[in-house]
Amino acid sequence: MGSRFLYWPGCTTSYLLPELSERMGGLLGRLGIDFKLLSGKERCCGYPLVLLGDYESFSSLAVDVVDLISAEEPEAVITNCPGCYRCFTEFYPRFLGRNSFKVMHSTRLIYDAIKDGKLRFRNSAKLRITYHDPCDLGRHSGIYDVPRNILTSIPGVELVEMERSRESARCCGGGGLLRLSISQLSTQIAVTRIKDDIAPLNVDAIVTACPTCLKNLRDGVSISKLIYDTKDFNVLDIVELVDMLIE
């Protein structure tokens, strides 16, 4: 009790990318943000149940999650997962009939900190990057500009747009549970994203803002390198990039 914010990493970050949640925690700490984690009490947000059409299980899980979060009385829930973000902001109100808590995606928090002058970057970066719009953040939640504003605020970082970006962005292949259900197809979509959309840009790194995209694009990079001899692109979550380049 008492912490203003609750950091909700979500299952993908928490179970498959623990280093990302550590980065995120570190960044929050450096920003002087008073936050806490649910740690062992953490649940799935239920988004996979929505994607399965299992609305019955989802509704009952959502009630539990709202209780769990409300008990902490946070000013806002911060998550770096666009799936959780969409689920909390779109499906919770739809199924529960009310807004239960305030949710912020990590990109909003970071951008606000930049605007408030709380985040300063080293001047030493020299990085040519592209940004991959996660479906759940972009098309499904309408957040296209905030991550781009962060990237263009970092000195020495050059943002190169893909031809297929924003609402035209090709999915990384990890959406709709495909990564878990038809993984070969899922990875192949990532390979095409790398080979067709990213490789021609000659960038050093691919930045995204979603743990599922991160995992799928990383798989895509290694396979595309193997088959098409494309570059061994570094795939970074925007949280990682920011944390790396912070003053």
Partner: peptide, 8 residues
């Protein structure tokens, strides 16, 4: 079940 629900 083959849809990525990506919204494109």
């Amino acid at each position: 079940f083959t849809c990525a629900v990506c919204g494109r």
